[in-house]
Design a binder for these strands. Structure first.
Lengths: 234, 234
DNA sequence: TACTTTTCACCTAGGTGCGAAGAT
DNA sequence: ATCTTCGCACCTAGGTGAAAAGTA
């Protein structure tokens, strides 16, 4: 995922739907992004793969991004998809716009938090003081970069993001375009980690809570690739 | 104000700030638009004035447009201006997008409602069943039209609305441009109805409630003109 | 060398009045 | 005649990766 000083959106968008919440209760839905491991990576271009390049840089404390439409009623949550299209990623540690601060060349895991809001409660700053439940989709792991390291990722982003339509030039060919086998191999890997359905068997805040991630406007296989460094295991 | 089948924004935007609300309480802020009188109007172009043209068409029931950021805490209301930039006006009686439905060639008065929200309450559909207070700014009265009847209104909208910048052609001259006296007379009229400050002496929901209307991006004199039929008393 | 920053053309998305055409 | 509708050019606002320049 690209990160910049001014902030870039995540693409594809993280979209979550919930089932089993209480109609009359009120919930906040938050997103944060945490390090996957303590490593820093580099990309070996000639091998088309990520390699460990040492220990991680000190991480900024993970910021909680509340969905701007929060709080939701349980009723709303059951009917509508919660879409995090506005959240932005940045490498600016001094950011004061509530963006998610990440280190480039590190791997990250987005998380979704469903929080039962208290009546007179202020903004949610510490999950440990809230009644909540956290959901993780391992297939959404990604590597933060300031520029794409791999031409196939670039192509997938361009082909699936409507804002990049200007670069959909069929005359623009990459090495990978001339090696269809490479693409097929990657697709195989992706099909092995399908979108997962979580049924909330545990009962942290509500029983039967269920969620699923839905990616916007792109077929599932592409979504995983576009989001993740998963396709290039280190 | 222009109304269309698909809906047009109000311009200038209705913007309200409040003082004296209770920090911890929660309020919804709503806008509606009600007929000023039971009349239908027509514009006498050669006289540059509005004339009564008969009885009003049957009005659609006034729709309550809740500000999309509602509910607000009293604290928020004291600090930030509530801006109704997104509200749309339409002449489509079958509208199902929550737009405000008006009749063309009729005169209207926007109203602002400050409603104390109940905890488990659903959407606000009937003000008479709510603890609320209503504010009216007479200087915001306007005439709904499907096309501007007066070239000076057109000029003011073009000069003050950033989305109409494409029409700011200095070569485009109107009859009024060649008669500066006409403009001066209108400005005189406008200066006699300044923006009013309401101090909430009555205590329907909160004492000392105060509000003021602030128009976006246009100097006050223009704002009144742009909004209203007031400059052309019938 | 190995990234990161900046500027830019090219998009999406949608708010303007214009003016020709339509409706009554 | 008098109003309304519709497609349009022209904007605002802002999300894309490209490519050149910057950094260390």
């Amino acid at each position: 995922m690209i990160i910049t000083k001014t902030g870039r959106r995540m693409f594809p968008t993280v979209r979550v739907s919930f089932a089993g919440c209480r109609s009359e209760a009120r919930y906040a839905v938050l997103l944060d992004v945490v390090p996957v491991d303590g490593k820093r990576y580099r990309y070996a271009y000639h091998r088309s793969s990520w390699l460990v390049a040492g220990k991680a840089d000190p991480p900024a404390p993970a910021r909680l991004y509340p969905h701007p439409d929060s709080p939701f009623s349980g009723d709303q949550l059951r009917k509508q998809v919660v879409s995090f299209e506005k959240v932005k990623l940045t490498n600016n540690e001094m950011d004061k716009n509530g963006q998610i601060v990440l280190n480039s060349m590190h791997r990250y895991q987005p998380r979704i938090h469903l929080v039962k809001v208290r009546d007179g409660g202020g903004p949610i700053t510490d999950l440990s003081r809230e009644q909540h439940r956290t959901f993780i989709f391992p297939e959404t792991v990604f590597t933060a970069v300031t520029a794409y390291q791999n031409q196939l990722i670039t192509k997938l982003k361009i082909d699936s993001n409507p804002f990049a339509k200007g670069f959909r030039d069929s005359s623009r060919l990459t090495d990978f375009d001339r090696d269809p086998m490479e693409l097929m191999l990657m697709e195989q890997q992706l099909l092995r980690s399908p979108l997962r359905l979580y049924s909330g068997a545990s009962s942290t805040i509500e029983e039967e809570a269920e969620k699923r991630a839905v990616w916007a406007r792109t077929p599932p296989a592409l979504q995983l690739l576009a989001l993740g460094g998963r396709a290039w295991p280190s």
